[in-house]
């Protein structure tokens, strides 16, 4: 049974599919996040070194993972768009960016709120926080470039190219920042690497990460549907929906 995946690469058939999938991903996201919070706040024991403060980890680490993961996925979609010239993948890339930027900001914010009680400072030029900050700049650059170009086709292609260049640079930046950090100061407490991490802590973190992932898929599918409607508004199938007055 071969499924014709190319069929869903066309915006016209992806649009209703995405609409049907969105509620399911919302349910998954809600269930996983509730389980994650329950494990994180009720089941997981108090850390003997950090006290209760470590519970910030259950959103900080998943948000940081998602911020990097989304950038990679964005660059893959941008690469697909350049190679295969599929319209849908450029739309996916642009739809992913705001969510990625949001999670990057969350990772920075929660990092600061964790750093204050642990390090005694809101901001420390720690290798991970610094790379995360630069990642935020990369997201902002991507979105600004997209917003600055009026023609959506050119905007998608130009920002896609930038995403790919950024993705090649991300490991180099991370490596260089880490190198810089070890030369300047010994790492203080490293996040998420507590030697005695209980299994429940790991489980809570993993489930929260899955929940954030499902949230990302749901919200990105919603956004890509807007993107499709906007860019395909002159096509026959959108015009038909307009004349019927229902948008799936």
């Amino acid at each position: 049974m071969a499924i014709n995946w190319y069929k869903f690469a066309s915006p016209a058939s992806f649009y209703p599919l995405a609409g049907r999938l969105v509620p399911w991903f919302w349910i998954l996201a809600a269930v996983l996040i509730v389980i994650g919070l329950y494990l994180g706040f009720v089941v997981a024991p108090t850390d003997y070194k950090q006290g209760e403060a470590y519970r910030i980890m259950f959103i900080h680490v998943p948000a940081a993972w998602m911020s990097m993961f989304i950038y990679i996925v964005m660059a893959i979609y941008a690469g697909l768009a350049l190679v295969l010239k599929t319209r849908l993948s450029t739309m996916m890339a642009t739809a992913l960016a705001p969510t990625g930027a949001m999670f990057t900001f969350v990772a920075l914010w929660t990092g600061a709120f964790w750093g204050k009680p642990m390090w005694g400072a809101w901001w420390v030029w720690d290798a991970r926080l610094t790379s995360e900050l630069i990642l935020l700049f990369l997201y902002i650059g991507y979105m600004s470039l997209y917003a600055a170009i009026d023609d959506p086709r050119r905007a998608a292609r130009a920002s896609g190219l930038l995403a790919i260049v950024g993705a090649v640079n991300v490991p180099i930046i991370y490596f260089s920042v880490k190198w810089w950090n070890t030369l300047h100061q010994g790492a203080s407490i490293s996040f998420g690497q507590a030697p005695t991490m209980a299994a429940t802590m790991l489980a809570a973190m993993g489930i929260m990460a899955l929940g954030f992932w499902m949230y990302t898929i749901a919200v990105v599918l919603m956004r890509v549907r807007c993107e499709i409607l906007e860019r395909e508004r002159h096509s026959d199938w959108v015009q038909e929906m307009v004349s019927r007055g229902t948008y799936g």
Binding site: A53, R55, M102, V106, W109, T110
Partner: peptide
């Protein structure tokens, strides 16, 4: 109170929650 860390923990969770809802 979260063992004295309430402000930091709820400060993180609240902002995260608000941002996620706001995005939607």
């Amino acid at each position: 109170d979260m063992g004295g860390y309430g402000f930091y923990i709820w400060g993180s969770y609240l902002v995260t929650g608000v941002l996620m809802v706001l995005e939607v």
